[in-house]
Amino acid sequence: MDITMLDETETLQDSEMQDVEKLLDFAADYLKLPEDTEMSVTMMDNAAIHEINRTYRQIDRPTDVISFALEEETDDEPPIIFDEEMEISQLPRNLGDIMISLDKAHEQAEEYGHSFHRELGFLALHGFLHINGYDHMTLEDEKEMFSLQKEILDAYGLKR
């Protein structure tokens, strides 16, 4: 899996960024995603994620994680049409983008009584599942997503 990792805050250590990348690679293998799958993860502060939340979700406050799934279709977007000679299978699968507030990750780690490392991994995996089509808008969907989330975190060894 090709993961572009960015830290806009320039506060994370390389090992912390690598830990997130390893967890997401593990999750991609767990979901049996193709090797050429791509995505990005951007670490930011509350101010930056607040602006994104306000602009794209019309929610005027910071949040912990926001995901933008590229494979998600909306009514107001035109379909992508490929040239007949171009094989779609030749293109890598790009899942989308995940943005994580490091400020929120620190706050929530303290609030929930576990490490920052665990909270950061949890948020990254939560966003990853969203860009893979999982959601928690209904009780049934929530049960499916949250149990898969726990299953992957437990299998990886990142427990509370």
Rank of each mutant, 00 (worst) to 15 (best):
N53I: 01
Y156I: 07
I80D: 07
K150W: 05
H114C: 06
E51K: 05
E21S: 14
Y56D: 13
H126D: 04
A27I: 10
E84P: 06
S89V: 06
G133L: 09
K22S: 12
M137Q: 12
Q90D: 14
L148Q: 04
R57H: 15
D7A: 12
A47V: 12
K143H: 11
I3G: 00
E119G: 13
H126W: 04
E87V: 04
T63M: 12
P78M: 08
L102Q: 02
H50S: 14
L120C: 06
T37V: 02
Q108S: 05
D154T: 15
G127Y: 13
T74A: 03
T63I: 15
F68T: 04
E71F: 02
H117P: 03
D83H: 10
S101M: 08
D97W: 01
N53W: 01
I100T: 10
F122Q: 08
G121M: 06
D60N: 14
D64E: 09
L24M: 08
L70G: 07
D64H: 05
E110L: 11
K32H: 15
H50Q: 15
L31H: 01
R160T: 10
Y112P: 00
E111W: 09
E140K: 12
A124I: 07
L33K: 10
P79W: 01
R61V: 14
K143R: 15
P78Y: 06
Y112C: 03
R118Q: 13
L123W: 02
L12R: 05
G113R: 07
D135E: 15
E77C: 01
R61A: 14
K150P: 01
D2N: 14
E87P: 02
A28S: 15
D25A: 06
P92Y: 04
Q58Y: 09
E144T: 15
H106V: 13
M39W: 00
A69I: 02
Q18F: 05
E38A: 00
T9G: 00
L23E: 14
E71L: 09
F116K: 13
T11G: 00
F146Q: 13
N46T: 02
L123G: 04
V65S: 01
L70Y: 15
E87F: 07
M86F: 11
R93G: 01
D7G: 08
Y112L: 11
M17Q: 06
L23N: 12
I52C: 01
V41H: 00
T37W: 00
M145I: 10
D103M: 08
D141G: 07
E51H: 02
F146K: 10
E35L: 09
L125Y: 03
Q149T: 12
V65L: 02
K143F: 13
N94E: 10
D141K: 12
G96W: 00
M86G: 05
L33D: 04
Y112R: 11
I49F: 03
E84A: 08
Q18C: 01
S15L: 04
H130D: 08
P34G: 02
R93Q: 06
Y112V: 04
M86N: 07
E107N: 09
